[in-house]
Design a protein around this nucleic acid. Structure first.
Length: 494
RNA sequence: GGCGCAUUCGUCUAGAGGCCCAGGACACCUCCCUCUCAAGGAGGAGAUCGGGGGUCCGAAUCCCCCAUGCGCUACCA
C-alpha cells in the first residue's frame, strides 16, 4: 500500500551526473522507499542552450546501475506525465498567461544588453544586484509601442515589495527572507521555455509532490517558490534542503574536480552497493558507529532527522576501503561474474579469448581479498594467463644466496614435483615445505624463488594455493625456465 | 557588496546541559599472524568541540557578538 509521500529527482540534462547529483537522487529514493511512497524522475530540459546529447540516458543509466528504480518517469510513464518538461510547454504558457492576467506577473521588454549594463552599474556601486523593475508598471501605450517594435518579451514575476517570506525547512528549521530584497525574476524566457522556477512549481504541484528534497544551493531561491505557490493558489510542498557534496577544496563538487561522473565509478569497478552505502553516509548516519549497512537497513532506518546540515567532502580513500569490504563479501561465483568482463577487456591481446570462467573461478578466492576495484583484477590475475612471464631475473636470487644455491634449490624441487600425481595445495605443501630444511634455506628465501619462478612476481597470493591453481604443467614449465636462467647466471659467475 | 546557510580529529561522522578531560570509521604509525602482498587481530597518535562573551552548580550542546567557509545574487538549473 503506497503512502502519500511523493518525491522526485529532477535533473537537468546539461551534463553527466556526478556524485553530488546522484546523492540527491539517492536521498529522495531512500525517503520514498522508507515511507512506502513514490519516487519520480522528471527531466528538466528547459535550457536549450546547455542541453547535452546523451545526458538524459546517462542519468537514467546511473540510476539503474545503482538500483535506484523509479515508479514514474521516463521509460516507465505514470499518471502525471509527460515527465519531460520540454513536452509540457503548453501548461507553462497557460499558467504564465494566467499569472499575467491576474496581475501576479508582467511582460518585460528589457534587452539582455540593458540588463547586463544595469548589473554592472549595480556591482560598481556595491548596490544589491537584481532587476530594477523598469517594466513592472508599463502603461498600455508603452506596452503596445514595445510590442510593435517586435520585441519578444519575457514574463517576470511581480515579487511583493514588502513583508517577508518564511518557511520551515525540515533540515534547517525556519528560514526567513525579506521580500524587499528579492527581485522580479523571470518565469518565461523569450525562447518560449519556462525557467526552473516556473516549471518546477507547476510540475511539483501537478505531480502532487509532497516533499521537495533538493540540494542546499536551492535554499536561497525557495522564497521565490513559496511566493509562486501562493500566487497560483497552490499548497506548497514540504522542503528539505540537503547538504551539498564538496570537492577537496571545499567548493561545491563539479566537473573540474575530476572523475566525478557516476558511470566512471562503474567503469573503474566500484560495486553499486558499495557506492550506495558510501553515499548514504555522506550527510546521513545510522548511529555513532555503523558503517557497513545493507541497503534494506538503510531504507528501514533512513530519516531526514539524521541528515546533517554541513556539506561533506567526498573521500576516495574511504570509498575504496568500503568497496573492498563489499568485494570480499561476494561469493567466488559472484566475484567471478563481475570480474570477468573487466579481465576480458584488460588482459593483453595475445592472451586467447574467451578466458575460462572455470579457471577464473579457481583463481577468485586467491585474489578477492586483494581487490579494491574490479579494474585491479586484471593486474592481479595476469600471470595466471600469461605463459610468457617476463621479470627481472635477479628477483630469483634470494637474500644472502648465490646463483648455484638457486640452481640447486630449483633442481631439487623439480625432481620432487615431477612425481606428484595429485596436484593439490596440501600435497604440494607437504612435499615442499620440508625441503626448506634440507636445502638449508629460510622459508622466505626458498618460497621466494618458487614464487618468482611460477608467477614472475615478488608479491602474489600464497605459494601453494597459487601453484595448485596454475596446475602441474604450467608450474613445471615455468620452473624449468627459471632453472635455465639461474644456470646461466651461475655459469657466468655473477 | 547584499542575502542565506553552516562551523566537532587531515577526511566522513556520533553527540540534542552532567553518561564527553568528546565515541566510531577512513587514512597514518607500531605490533601480532605470516612464504611475499593483502586480508584479519591488537594497540598508538590525532579535536583546548572556529574565536570571544554570557546563562547555569555544570555547555560541544542554550543565548549574543565576531571570524571564516560555502551557497545564491542569470532570459542556468
Amino acid at each position: 500500500m503506497k503512502s502519500n509521500v511523493r518525491v522526485r529527482f529532477a535533473p537537468s540534462p546539461t551534463g553527466y551526473p556526478h556524485l553530488g547529483n546522484i546523492r540527491t537522487a539517492l536521498f529522495n529514493w531512500l525517503f520514498a522507499r522508507h515511507n512506502n511512497g513514490t519516487f519520480i524522475i522528471r527531466i528538466e530540459d528547459t535550457d536549450v542552450a546547455r542541453k547535452v546529447d546523451g545526458a538524459t540516458e546517462s542519468i537514467l543509466e546511473s540510476l539503474r546501475w545503482l538500483g535506484l528504480n523509479w515508479d514514474e518517469g521516463p521509460e516507465v510513464g505514470g499518471d502525471f506525465g509527460p515527465y519531460f518538461q520540454s513536452q509540457r510547454l503548453e501548461i507553462y504558457h497557460k499558467v504564465a498567461q494566467q499569472l499575467v492576467d491576474e496581475g501576479y506577473a508582467y511582460k518585460c521588454y528589457c534587452s539582455t544588453e540593458r540588463l547586463q549594463k544595469m548589473r554592472e552599474e549595480q556591482t560598481k556601486n556595491s548596490a544589491p544586484t537584481g532587476y530594477d523593475r523598469r517594466c513592472r508598471n508599463l502603461s498600455n501605450e508603452e506596452r503596445t509601442r514595445l510590442e510593435q517594435q517586435g520585441i519578444t518579451p519575457v514574463v517576470r514575476f511581480k515579487f511583493p515589495l514588502e513583508g517577508e517570506t518564511r518557511f520551515n525547512d525540515l533540515i534547517r528549521g525556519e528560514v526567513v527572507f525579506q521580500n524587499s530584497l528579492m527581485d522580479d525574476f523571470v518565469l518565461l524566457k523569450s525562447d518560449g521555455y519556462p525557467t526552473y522556477h516556473l516549471a518546477n512549481i507547476i510540475d511539483d504541484h501537478l505531480m502532487q509532490i509532497s516533499h521537495v528534497l533538493r540540494a542546499d544551493e536551492w535554499l536561497s531561491s525557495t522564497p521565490r517558490h513559496i511566493q509562486l505557490y501562493q500566487a497560483m493558489g497552490y499548497e506548497p510542498p514540504i522542503f528539505a534542503h540537503l547538504p551539498i557534496i564538496l570537492g577537496p577544496d571545499r567548493a561545491k563538487l563539479s566537473k573540474r574536480h575530476g572523475a566525478t561522473s557516476v558511470l566512471e565509478y562503474r567503469d573503474l569497478g566500484y560495486l553499486p552497493e558499495a557506492l550506495v552505502n558510501f553515499l548514504s553516509l555522506l550527510g546521513w548516519s545510522l548511529d555513532d558507529k555503523t558503517e557497513i549497512i545493507p541497503i534494506a537497513d538503510i531504507i528501514a532506518h533512513f530519516s531526514l532527522e539524521r541528515v546533517r546540515k554541513t556539506g561533506a567532502i567526498f573521500s576516495r580513500d574511504k570509498l575504496d576501503w568500503m568497496n573492498g569490504i563489499y568485494m570480499r563479501a561476494l561469493t567466488p561465483e559472484q566475484f567471478t561474474a563481475k570480474a570477468l568482463p573487466f579481465i576480458e577487456k584488460g588482459l593483453p591481446a595475445e592472451i586467447k579469448r574467451p578466458i575460462s570462467r572455470d579457471y577464473l573461478l579457481n583463481i577468485a578466492p586467491l585474489i578477492q581479498d586483494r581487490v579494491k576495484l574490479l579494474k585491479d583484477t586484471t593486474e592481479l590475475v595476469e600471470f595466471f594467463f600469461n605463459d610468457n612471464l617476463t621479470y627481472d631475473h635477479n628477483m630469483l636470487l634470494g637474500k644472502n644466496m648465490t646463483w648455484s644455491d638457486v640452481v640447486r634449490a630449483i633442481e631439487r624441487t623439480l625432481a620432487v614435483l615431477h612425481d606428484i600425481t595429485e596436484w593439490e595445495e596440501k600435497i604440494l605443501e607437504q612435499l615442499i615445505r620440508p625441503m626448506t630444511e634440507e636445502l638449508n634455506l629460510k622459508a622466505s628465501q626458498y618460497f621466494g624463488i618458487l614464487r618468482v619462478a611460477t608467477t614472475g612476481r615478488a608479491a602474489a597470493p600464497p605459494l601453494f594455493q597459487t601453484m595448485a591453481v596454475l596446475g602441474k604443467e604450467r608450474c613445471l614449465n615455468r620452473i624449468e625456465k627459471a632453472r635455465e636462467i639461474a644456470s646461466h647466471k651461475a655459469a657466468a659467475g655473477t
